[in-house]
Each structure stands twice: as structure tokens, then as C-alpha cells.
């Protein structure tokens, strides 16, 4: 009953919103000065499969309390930067690490939905692991030298901005009595989106 309904003309109205969320992800790089910094900054922020788990990580850090969020501020961007450098120097593991990213959406969503308080080393280990994996898969073309440095800094900055702003924002929110519930509900949404993404990827649907 829900099948085979054509996307109608007015649905095009939604396209700008969708584009707004996605456009620059595929804008390719030109080897000139600060371009790589902004390209690096925007690539993860405009790719849903990166930005969704990063948001989850930022929120999860807040759920872990102030210490977790604080250390995450340092650990995650550093891990992302190292991941990007590894991705440029030792390419070839993208396909495998895509699964790491998919797992990160599901796992982080689940942890957020259940609001689990992890031991500090476990949380930071997870953050570093996903940071490396996401950094690695953010490499979009062969860059070297200054360009690579700028691009890496851009991607790491994106990670830093997200975990700093969201971590602090969520920390304020979870102190309200409705706040934790809202954050957990968001976690369940992320988990659900991750499960759908994982399902389509695993079962070989196109576009994954």
C-alpha cells in the first residue's frame, strides 16, 4: 500500500533542504591555498554518514559527564587528524573502514539511547577508534604537503567544533530534567537511522 507512489512535483520543494545538507560534499578540491582547509572543514559536516555519528559522539560525551566531554575535546580531533594522515599515506582500507563508520552510527546511537555511563578509558578508546576510522574515510583525493596539512586541519577542526559545541550544549541540556530524555530520544533516532543505513548497505542496496 505504501509502495509505488511516485515522488510528485511539489516534493521538489524539499530538494533545496536536502541539497543544503549535502551539496559541498562532492565539490572537488582545487590545489590552492586555503581551499583545502575549508574543503576539510566542510567534508565531514556535509556528509550525513560522518556528521550523524559525530553528533552522537558529541552528545554521548556530555552524557559521560564533564570530564569525559573535556577529554573528548582533545582525543577526538587528534584521532581524526591522525586518521586523515593515515588515509593519505596508507590508502586501501576504505571499504573495510566504511563498516567501522556504519558500526559507529549504530553503536553510538545505542549508547546514547540507553545513556550508558561508560568507564572513562572505554569511552575515550571508542572516541579515538571512531575518530581514526572517520578520519581515514574522510580522505577524498590525493593531497600532499601543505594541502594535506590544511585539509587535515580542516577535518580535525570540524570534529573539534562539533564535539565542543555539541558537548557543551548537551551538557547544559542534560542538566534540565527533560534534557536527558530529549538526548536519549535523539539517540534512538540516530540508532534507527543507523540500522536502516546498515541494513541497506549490508543487503547490497545501491547508493549506500
Amino acid at each position: 500500500m505504501l509502495r509505488n507512489r511516485p515522488i510528485r512535483r511539489w516534493h521538489a520543494a524539499l530538494v533545496p533542504i536536502a541539497l543544503l545538507a549535502s551539496t559541498p560534499a562532492h565539490a572537488h578540491l582545487v590545489s590552492t591555498r586555503f581551499g583545502e582547509f575549508y574543503a576539510g572543514l566542510l567534508h565531514p559536516l556535509t556528509t550525513l554518514s560522518h556528521v550523524v555519528p559525530w553528533v552522537a559522539l558529541g552528545l554521548l560525551a556530555a552524557v559521560q559527564g564533564i570530564r569525559g566531554a573535556r577529554w573528548n575535546l582533545l582525543a577526538f580531533p587528534l584521532a581524526v587528524a591522525i586518521g586523515v594522515l593515515l588515509g593519505s599515506w596508507l590508502p586501501g582500507f576504505d571499504a573495510g573502514l566504511q563498516w567501522g563508520n556504519i558500526a559507529s552510527i549504530v553503536l553510538l546511537g545505542a549508547l546514547l539511547a540507553t545513556a550508558v555511563a561508560l568507564p572513562m578509558p572505554a569511552f575515550l578508546g571508542l572516541s579515538v577508534l571512531f575518530g581514526l576510522s572517520h578520519g581515514y574515510t574522510n580522505v577524498v583525493s590525493e593531497l600532499e604537503g601543505r594541502a594535506l596539512l590544511l585539509y587535515t586541519t580542516g577535518v580535525a577542526c570540524a570534529g573539534y567544533l562539533l564535539v565542543a559545541l555539541l558537548g557543551a550544549g548537551a551538557l547544559v541540556v542534560v542538566r534540565q530534567n527533560w534534557g536527558l530524555v530529549a538526548v536519549r530520544a535523539l539517540g534512538s533516532w540516530i540508532l534507527a537511522a543507523g540500522v536502516i543505513f546498515a541494513g541497506f548497505s549490508l543487503l547490497g542496496q545501491p547508493g549506500a
Binding site: 564533564i66 573535556r70 575535546l73 565542543a164 559545541l165 558537548g167 557543551a168 550544549g169 551538557l171
Partner: peptide
């Protein structure tokens, strides 16, 4: 970022 760092006491 300034306020974020203040909230996180970082």
C-alpha cells in the same frame, strides 16, 4: 567555542 570551553571547564 569560548562558552563551550567554559561549560566544559577545559
Amino acid at each position: 567555542l569560548y562558552h563551550a570551553h567554559r561549560v566544559l571547564q577545559a
